[in-house]
Design a binder for these strands. Structure first.
Lengths: 118, 118
DNA sequence: CCACTATATTCGTTATTTCGAATATACTAA
DNA sequence: TTAGTATATTCGAAATAACGAATATAGTGG
């Protein structure tokens, strides 16, 4: 695969590599919202929200349009929602795996060993 | 959605937010490889590759198993490959959009204006 | 034991990200 | 014009990431 494509992918990931920005994308899942609404729901500083929105714009994850005084944001491509959905499933799959492993470990290992081991 | 899930997602994205690490994941797409093979194909410093592998392990993106002298890496969950595929399609979709927009702009705007604008 | 190979970790440096505070810009309404 | 609201940008500090050089660890075969 080309370097350009790898670069592009890593920039998308970088754009989403922050819990606040994920929250923003998820708030936009149902459609566009003005920046002010986002700030209210996120409960963070206005400047900070605006900075995160700038990152999302720079990485082409969202687009904005101005309406009078306000700026409406929306997700540029539904593919990104799909990505988040995949990761949600992935998260729960991993959770199950972890829990299963813990249960097995508990069954196989006498309690006394659990305490003193290593 | 829960904070924990958002945190988890952002950590996955952080894990993939680097072209070298994307290259690693793509090299592992067809199955496991020992670290040495990865280093050869990536053409980077051994220490650097090992550091990136440590990040991928920490974010639970890959798993490793030791066989004698070597450490074999593989992708923990195919879902991540799916994510990369979605982004590949997304990349080309965006490319098309951009090209189309450039073409339209060129048609609508006389050449003289393209030079002097702003 | 020693020497060798494969991989990981630590360290120091430089670059990037994140945040809040302050400031700037753009729009509306009077 | 001025005042007010919505949003963006700049600045400086603290935290985090990335890299190569050096070193450490674990495994294999004499």
């Amino acid at each position: 695969m080309s370097d350009a494509l790898r670069q592009f992918k890593s920039e998308i990931f970088q754009g989403l590599a922050n819990p606040t920005r994920i929250a923003i994308v998820e708030l936009l899942r149902e459609g566009e919202l003005p920046a002010g609404k986002l700030i209210d729901k996120l409960g963070i500083e206005q400047a900070n929200a605006s900075q995160h929105l700038a990152v999302l714009r720079a990485k082409q994850i969202v687009v904005s349009r101005k309406v009078g005084n306000q700026v409406y944001y929306s997700i540029r491509d539904r593919a990104l929602i799909e990505v988040l959905d995949i990761l949600r499933r992935y998260f729960y799959a991993q959770l199950n795996t972890t829990v299963t492993m813990l249960k097995e470990a508990a069954r196989e290992t006498p309690k006394s060993r659990l305490v003193t081991r290593r």
